[in-house]
Amino acid sequence: MKQEIIIAGFGGQGVLSMGKILAYSGLMENKEVSWMPSYGPEQRGGTANVTVILSDERISSPVLNAFDIAIILNQPSLEKFESKVKPGGILIYDGYGIHQAPARKDIQVYRIDAMDTANEMKNGKAFNMIVLGGLLKIAPMVSLENVLKGLKKSLPERHHKLIPMNEQAILKGMEIIKKL
C-alpha cells in the first residue's frame, strides 16, 4: 500500500505541519515515510506545499509528478495541482479558499469547510487538524490513535496540552467532510 499525497495552500495555514503530523503518524505505524516541503522565504502568505508519501515499501522518489490525494487549501494551488491527481484519485478542498470548484470528473472530489468551522470553534489554529480529520475519514491510512501519538512526537513538550483540542478538531473534520 502506498499513498502519495500533496498538501498545498498558503504559508501560515499549517500545510507543512499537517504534513509532518501525517508523516509522524505513518512512522508510528512502521510505514516508510517521506516529507518533502517546498521551502522558501515565504513564512506567511506565500504559497506552500508538501509532498507526503506513506508506503509499506522503500520509497524511491520524494518528488512526484502525480498524486493519489491532493489537499488543496487555496485557488492557486488548485490551479497547480488539480491536473496532477491520478485518475480515480482524491481531491479534497476547503470551500473558503476556493472560488472556482474543481472541474475534473475522473477523480473523487470532496469539500471540507474547515476555515468556517475553525472560525465557529473560535480556534483558527484548529484549521489544519480539521482538514486532517476530513482526510482520515475518506482515506483512513493511519489510525486516530497513531495520529495522536504522531502529534505528541512532532509537537514540542510545552504544546502537549493542545493535543485534546487537536483531537476534537480531527473528529470535527471527520464529521463535516462531504463528497460532491
Partner: peptide, 10 residues
Amino acid sequence: DGIIGQMMEK
C-alpha cells in the same frame, strides 16, 4: 542538495 537537506525521512 536542498532536497536531501530539507526532506524528512526515517
